[in-house]
């Protein structure tokens, strides 16, 4: 992964019917770096992620890819979903194989499945049904499936928010290691600021609806150096919270608005 993929948003805006949810977003997700989108609920961050991966057509503006993609990449822009989006009628291995079928030979497919299951610690669960797994394990399957297509860009839509706090903390460390190792361009949507400072190289703070870029914060320390309780990260987290606190309170009073990739 020498060059990597850059994702460039130019004046992107989006409206559902008459309600503007995103306005004038210009932003670049740099190759091999983690861009985190944070903001109060209803600010359109999941909508923005949907637009970045081509799952939603923006009302205005454009999204462009720039850069080179590895020859073995099967799906350059790959999502990890909040609700995992696993097929309940396929085993763990079957869910990963789904996205490889018709693109790799049977033997290559089996190898690839084995490789990503080992990477995510799921080898022993290859034949389990999704319903037999805990939430954290299900999201590991989601990650394994995403890594199996050798993505150039990972688009992660609140991947930890359906999980309990302990599982979240454990998976967060795994994510940091996997992202660092794979070297993909990553866009990570969250409302959890601790996740943002743990994973983000650039943290994009969105204002409440209509979502606009309020601030972009950079953290240059490599992910592998960062620990959950680090003082500078905690300070950064507090600073981010000061930024969005008033917006979050106002958004709370306005009530939530759905703006999902799946919507």
């Amino acid at each position: 992964m020498t060059a990597g993929l850059r994702l460039v948003l130019d004046k992107v805006g989006h409206a559902y019917d008459d309600m503007t949810v995103l306005d004038d977003i210009s932003l670049t997700a740099e190759p091999g770096r983690v861009t985190v989108l944070v903001g109060p609920s209803g600010c359109g961050k999941s909508t923005l992620l949907g637009i970045m991966g081509g799952m939603l057509a923006p009302t205005t503006g454009t999204v462009c890819c720039q850069g080179e993609v590895a020859p073995d990449c099967l799906n350059p822009l790959t999502y990890v979903f909040q609700d995992f989006a696993l097929l309940p009628w396929r085993s763990v291995a079957g869910n990963v194989a789904l996205v490889l079928e018709g693109r790799l030979s049977r033997a290559e497919r089996a190898d690839r499945v084995r490789e990503v299951l080992a990477l995510t610690g799921l080898t022993a669960f290859a034949d389990a049904w999704p319903r037999q797994l805990s939430g954290g394990m299900r999201q590991r399957v989601g990650i394994a499936r995403a890594l199996a297509v050798r993505p150039a860009c990972l688009l992660m839509d609140e991947p930890l928010s359906a999980l309990d706090a302990q599982t979240r903390a454990l998976l967060l460390d795994d994510f940091a290691a996997l992202i660092e190792r794979s070297g993909t361009t990553t866009v990570y949507v969250t409302h959890n600021l601790a996740e943002a400072v743990r994973l983000g190289h650039r943290i994009v703070v969105l204002s409440r609806r209509p979502g606009r870029i309020r601030e972009i914060v950079s953290i240059d320390r490599p992910l592998s150096d960062r620990r959950a309780g680090d003082a500078d990260l905690a300070a950064m987290e507090a600073a981010l919270w000061d930024m969005i606190r008033d917006d979050a309170a106002a958004a709370e009073r306005d009530g939530p608005v759905s703006g999902h990739v799946s919507a």
Partner: peptide, 10 residues
């Protein structure tokens, strides 16, 4: 959501 997942993986 499952259908969108399928689309997102091409």
């Amino acid at each position: 959501g499952l259908i969108r997942m399928g689309q997102s993986f091409g």
